[in-house]
């Protein structure tokens, strides 16, 4: 067999032999398994992935019976980003009836809860009107984005300035203060959109981008919202496979958050009342897509097996074995989607 056309993590095209692909699949699976202390891929799973890359079909899909639901992040900003001048309510109608979306998500263009707080009185009428006109369940989505709570964007001293000076305790206190501000904003925005505007749920997107203190803040906010509104749908999508220990000692329900991998992250999300969890596995742009896909599947499969709630893995530009490009190639996107759903038994993407 000749060379197989695939891509690198940055989307650029590359030709590889079957042996080279198999080598990348095995190496990445082993690497991920060792990092997260979870099982690697079986020989059958490696063969499945190799066959997926040998297949010359431009687009592939899941087997009948394995179809799953789709949730979205930053949905209404996608249309805005393309500079199509239509309202957010029109965008939601377009996603629902033009594109057949299973779920909808209203979002503010500045996709952080802190920024949404300022415009919540303008977001509520959008949600109020959207729920009258749409049929699919609708989230209000945003990011915890803890970084916005430190100087120069927020009121708290910046841990990034203090850590190089060796002010470890002061940095930890700053992270804890930032978390408290973030929790307050997330609960406020979530409550307003759910209780007063009729949303079906809240989506915490790109969670833990600022590390363990941000993960703590999102878990606490989810816990408070779940206690207030037991029927609220709460989705938590992550920012990466590994919780960065920028605080390093912060805990949730007695579990230290720094260094957790998806199979442990989801257990805490369940305890907090999250109803859909989205692991996010970052792309290595200088590695091949087979390498990236195998790595992502090892982490995601362990998460799905540990979970009792639905798992909607993040598959998009730069995560889940999809290249880091603005326009993901369908050959890559469809292969990553099929492999994740079938090997990880996912509930959605």
């Amino acid at each position: 067999m000749g060379k197989i056309l695939t891509r690198m993590g940055d989307g650029s095209r590359v030709e590889m032999t079957a042996a080279e692909i198999q080598q990348d699949l095995e190496a990445a699976a082993q690497d991920a398994a060792e990092r997260a202390n979870v099982p690697s891929l079986t020989d059958d799973e490696i063969k499945y992935l190799l066959d997926l890359y040998k297949c010359k079909d431009r687009v592939v899909g899941v087997e009948e019976g394995k179809e799953c639901c789709l949730t979205y992040d930053n949905m209404t900003s996608k249309i805005k980003r393309a500079h199509i001048p239509i309202s957010k309510i029109q965008q939601l109608l377009l996603f629902e009836r033009g594109l057949g979306a299973d779920t909808l998500e209203l979002a503010h263009i500045d996709y952080s809860f802190k920024q949404c707080k300022h415009v919540v009185q303008y977001e509520k009428p959008n949600m109020e009107q959207a729920v009258l006109q749409t049929i699919a369940p609708i989230f209000y989505g945003s990011m915890p984005n803890l970084g916005l709570y430190s100087v120069p964007d927020g009121p708290v001293a910046n841990p990034g300035d203090m850590l190089p000076l060796g002010k470890i305790e002061e940095s930890k206190e700053a992270f804890e203060q930032m978390a408290e501000y973030a929790i307050k904003d997330m609960v406020y925005v979530g409550s307003e959109l759910y209780e007063k505007a009729g949303a079906d749920g809240i989506n915490f997107d790109t969670t833990a981008a600022a590390g363990d203190a941000e993960f703590y803040a999102a878990l606490k906010a989810a816990e408070i919202l779940h206690d207030k509104y037991p029927d609220m749908g709460i989705e938590m999508g992550m920012s990466g496979e590994f919780i960065l220990g920028l605080h390093s000692e912060i805990e949730y329900n007695g579990v230290r958050l720094a260094g957790l991998y998806p199979q442990d992250q989801v257990k805490l999300a369940e305890q907090a009342g999250v109803t859909i969890f989205g692991p996010a596995i970052n792309i290595g742009t200088n590695e091949s897509l087979p390498w990236n896909l195998a790595r992502s599947i090892v982490f995601t499969k362990a998460c799905s097996e540990a979970a009792e709630i639905p798992i909607h893995a993040n598959l998009g530009m730069g995560v889940g074995g999809v290249p880091l490009t603005l326009t993901p190639p369908l050959d890559a996107l469809s292969r990553a989607s099929k492999a994740h759903v079938e090997l990880c038994r996912l509930d959605g993407l």
Binding site: R97, A101, D102, T103, A136, P137, D200, I276, E308, P310
Partner: peptide, 23 residues
């Protein structure tokens, strides 16, 4: 919305059902 995805998604969101149970 082309078929029943919104209905299955509602059961995932509100009841935390996994895909086969929700379907």
């Amino acid at each position: 919305m082309r078929a029943a995805g919104d209905l299955v998604a509602r059961m995932q969101m509100t009841r935390g059902m996994r895909i086969q149970e929700a379907k």
